[in-house]
Design a protein around this nucleic acid. Structure first.
Lengths: 210, 210
DNA sequence: AGTTGACGAATGAATGTTCATTCACTAATT
DNA sequence: AATTAGTGAATGAACATTCATTCGTCAACT
């Protein structure tokens, strides 16, 4: 009787998520009403519930969409053997190309993750994936002899994560933040660390002497 | 407003701010009700309005209290001539001693700052002050000959700010974040940068070759 | 080809709750 | 007595969610 039929109408989910992204960026999760999202999506509030079971589900779906995007970027990263080129590409894509609004939304997600375990879990997943991606691509470079043995790749990965997060916060909130300059500086720094020009694990004597 | 006179009774403001801090940390600004704060402060909601004119005013006052604390820490920093010692102290105080909850609250403040201009302004003030503090203490060290001329102190200050923000985000949300290790690593890195072991402004040839 | 009816999509008007804020009042202090 | 602190019970607005209803499309049957 009931045939598996192709959806008669458009799938409204992407459209709703786009609307939600605008609203959440503009007003934050909690100041955004379902009425706002519906208005932005060109429909009526009740109808949102056909696609997302609750406001929380909507938030979560939005975050998961971002996650998928990041994951895709990292899949592409492993390909080439050009380590710094890969980092430069990623840096460009994530900190220069993307508008400030994305950074603002990320801040929102962070503050939400501190309380919503579902969001925390998604974020943890991204984090782990990015970290593994960084280490993997570095290890490939090490096999080619580009990275000295004494460089602690795990520490490098943590450093990059820290720098990335710091950049996001500054991009979102510092009025005179200059993406290009900042990214260039930090790529430079990372390059130097990977070269072994400085070690992340203490070479205490020199430092203490300062 | 009427701070002019010594209160006849206890000043409840600190007590209320403490309560608010707990609540905001636990639930975020927007999920915290005035009823929650009042309960935590051991009083009745209406009474909060004797001390703060609105929920927003309460949030702002809390942020300003933090600002004062940070400012005080930085006032102390300039004193000694021990550059890395000063950084180590600050790093310890802000990233190791303070509980994770403080970092969570900071995340909350960030996401709020993106929309509330009053908060953004306070944050901008802190930012500027910290930055000036860093540069000032570095310049003092440079006069003593501890920092080579080619080190770009402005870039160093930006780097430190970025690293600090990244640390806060990771401390708040990474389940296996290790304050001591991370801070030690980054102090080490900063020390190396200040030594001139690596330059933040491109020495392109080497990097590109990687 | 035209009609019908089934069914998913969308609407719009509630509904019930949660919450910031108010206020008339009582208690304590000087 | 006068002033300040604190109470507790509203109040009313905002908002997530529900639901009865309408609309649009298509397939099956004349």
């Amino acid at each position: 009787m009931s045939l598996a039929r192709a959806p008669r109408y458009l799938d409204r989910r992407p459209q709703i998520l786009d609307a939600a992204e605008s609203c959440f960026t503009r007003s934050g999760f909690h100041r955004t009403t379902m009425q706002d999202v519906a208005g932005e999506a060109g429909m009526v509030p009740g109808n949102l519930y056909r696609y997302f079971s609750s406001k929380d589900a909507l938030i979560l779906a939005l975050i998961e969409r971002d996650r998928a995007e990041i994951a895709a970027d990292f899949a592409a990263l492993g390909g080439t053997g050009d380590l710094m080129g890969a980092f430069r590409t990623l840096g460009h894509r994530h900190f220069i190309e993307k508008p400030r609004e994305k950074a603002v939304l990320t801040l929102e997600i962070w503050s939400e993750a501190a309380r919503n375990p579902a969001i925390a879990e998604v974020m943890g997943g991204v984090q782990a994936e990015v970290r593994r991606g960084i280490i993997a691509v570095c290890e490939k470079a090490r096999l080619k002899g580009d990275i000295p043995d004494q460089v602690d790749l795990d520490a490098v990965a943590r450093l990059i994560l820290t720098l990335s997060d710091g950049l996001i916060r500054r991009k979102a909130l510092d009025p005179d933040f200059e993406s290009e300059t900042e990214v260039a500086t930090l790529l430079n720094l990372i390059g130097a660390v990977l070269c072994g020009s400085i070690s992340l694990t203490p070479c205490v004597a020199r430092i203490v002497s300062l």
